[in-house]
Simulated assay, not measured.
Amino acid sequence: MIFSYDKIAPNYDKFLSIVEEKSIDKYRKKYVPLIKGKVLDIAAGTGNNIKYYPKNSDVTLLDASEGMLKIAREKAKEREDLSLEYINQRLEDFELPDNYFDTILSIDVFCSVQDQDKAMKNIKRVLKKDGRIIFVEHMKTEFFLKNIPLYFSNLLTYPTVGSSMVKETDKKIEKYFKILEKEKLNYSFRYYLVTK
């Protein structure tokens, strides 16, 4: 789906403006400021986390779409206090050093990851032994009735941007990481703070 993201990049923020306004932006505002040290922002997209990075943050923004990163670079021009690096690679097979990052930030990412196991292993590899990952993800819930609208949403989201509303991302997080904190957020969103 890399080509799809490049193609829709100029209209991506407009396309998801309602979702951002109603839910995701408030999670960014709450959880992004928790990053510390050397940070990896995975599937950073058009850079909607940038405005919430703490002052003087050192962040590597990773995304499979160069078109999305181009927009992120434009947004970053308003934050001269930051040290930013941009890497155009897939989450499943990016090449960065082992045990390198203090914090990894994952907001609204794994719905679009084709091989979640491979991606989880890769981010675990680059996380320092005492590092932390902040996950804010939407996923399939444990309630059948709540999942029905999610399955219908897939009819739009999967063909357009490869995003599945019913992935069991919680099971993957709990398989690969030690859970420090977790919380149910609105509807199908969940927050996890994890370590190795």
Rank of each mutant, 00 (worst) to 15 (best):
L84M: 01
V194K: 02
N147Y: 01
I87M: 07
F152E: 00
K178A: 01
R79T: 10
D6K: 15
G45K: 09
D130E: 15
F177K: 04
D41A: 09
N56A: 15
P159Y: 04
I148C: 00
K22G: 11
T103E: 04
D13I: 03
L96H: 11
K26R: 12
G47I: 15
L150I: 00
K14P: 10
M68P: 11
E137L: 04
N49T: 12
I24M: 14
I71G: 14
D25A: 13
E74C: 05
G47N: 09
S83F: 12
D108M: 10
K38G: 06
V166F: 00
I50C: 08
S188D: 14
F177L: 06
F143D: 13
L69P: 05
S17I: 15
K70G: 13
Y187E: 12
L155G: 01
M1H: 13
N154C: 00
D25L: 13
R125Q: 08
Y5G: 08
L193Y: 07
D6T: 04
K26C: 08
N11T: 14
S65A: 02
E142H: 10
Y53S: 12
S153N: 14
D25I: 07
L180E: 13
E66M: 09
S4R: 15
Y31L: 02
P97D: 10
K51G: 02
L84P: 07
I179E: 02
N88L: 05
N48E: 14
T141D: 04
G47R: 13
L193P: 00
K124H: 07
R90H: 08
E92T: 11
K51C: 06
K175N: 03
S17N: 07
Q89H: 07
N88I: 09
K22S: 15
F135W: 11
E80C: 11
E183H: 00
R90L: 14
V19K: 10
I50E: 08
L96N: 06
T141F: 00
K121Q: 10
A64D: 03
K167W: 02
K140C: 02
R125S: 08
K22D: 12
P159V: 09
F101S: 04
M68N: 15
D108I: 10
T157R: 01
S65W: 08
V166N: 05
S83W: 06
A9R: 04
S106N: 10
D108R: 06
I42T: 13
S163H: 11
L155E: 01
G45Q: 03
K140D: 00
Y151D: 00
R73V: 08
K38E: 11
D41N: 08
M1G: 03
I134V: 09
K182N: 04
K121Y: 09
E78D: 12
K26E: 14
K118D: 07
P33N: 06
Y31D: 01
M165P: 01
I173M: 06
V136D: 04
K167P: 01
L105H: 09
F101N: 05
P10V: 03
Y86Q: 05
F189W: 12
N147H: 05
N56T: 02
E20C: 00
P54R: 09
N99L: 08
N186F: 15
F94L: 03
P54W: 05
V136G: 01
K51E: 13
F15P: 02
T169E: 06
I42Q: 03
F144L: 04
D63V: 11
K77W: 11
K7Q: 13
A64P: 08
S23C: 15
Y191D: 07
L61K: 01
E137W: 02
L82H: 06
Y86N: 03
E168P: 08
